[in-house]
Design a protein around this nucleic acid. Structure first.
Lengths: 146, 146
DNA sequence: TTAAACCCTAAACTATGGTTTAGAGCAAGC
DNA sequence: GCTTGCTCTAAACCATAGTTTAGGGTTTAA
């Protein structure tokens, strides 16, 4: 006989608060989870696979609504394979875009850190401040530095 | 004489709604922006540099509060260089973590897409469905597929 | 000189993704 | 059988990051 799991066991496994799992259920993300006579949620091994997918989509920034759409498609069986593929392909594009954004901006952050960490940081920053102050002064604008 | 810019020009340049710029100002992210006699915000060239930094931090997931802390440090001149470096170093760690998460989850998404795109996708999915149905049945749980 | 296009603030409103609370039932070990 | 710990729902609450609205002033170009 296979084992079943309580909401607490699932929560611990996925490092999610119990309240979040209930919230996901309320939002329709967990249609595959059964309840026992007492109204308790009963999770099976295969539910872990679905929840892992939900976490994967959540971790990559998919909104709850879209995750629900995906899960609903999954529950429709083989007829929805093409729609599922299209949905994930679109999502993959979004993830690649996110990676691009992180990559590009990380460069800028790294450059700034290097500037701050340089031997000469004080002079570099002084130069920047002077540039700003000169510009502000020439435009009759307030000096923003305190 | 150098040029100044209106809020609309800044908004267009950064592809941000005007309302967002006002919101950032209200949250203290734009202490370097002056106002004219009529109360209009007056942006200078060097403000674009600050705003670019704000966008960079925002694009990498830094909360408004922390961006404000960083900008406040910037306005304190050279005395805050070390604190700025520490703040950005911590943020860089967060960004690297985000990249890791995206990378790992993207693999899973790609795997799924490949499965859906495979010649044999229908049989693969049928197999998965059977596995779940067998398990649910053996546990006396409802069949989640419709 | 007047219409169109700007700009302003304050405050209300929205969306998203949860968390917390209240009130109550169920289960396990002593 | 009783306590402790688990479960449930519904509803209120929260944080974040804005957007929208109302009411009003300013600038520009015909």
């Amino acid at each position: 006989m296979k084992k079943t799991y309580s909401i607490k066991e699932v929560a611990d496994y996925f490092h999610l608060p119990i309240s979040t799992i209930r919230y996901y259920d309320k939002k329709g993300l967990l249609p595959f989870v059964s309840k026992n006579e007492a109204g308790y949620r009963v999770f099976s091994e295969s539910d872990f696979g679905f929840i892992k997918t939900i976490c994967c989509l959540k971790n990559t920034g998919m909104p709850i609504k879209d995750i629900r759409t995906y899960i609903d498609l999954c529950m429709q069986g083989t007829a929805s394979i093409q729609q599922r593929r299209e949905l994930l392909q679109q999502h993959k594009k979004n993830v690649l875009k996110q990676q691009q954004v992180l990559h590009d901006n990380l460069k800028e952050i790294t450059t700034k850190i290097q500037r701050y960490a340089s031997e000469d940081s004080v002079n570099i920053i002084k130069g920047q401040i002077n540039f700003v102050q000169d510009e502000k002064k020439s435009l009759n604008l307030e000096n923003p530095f305190k």
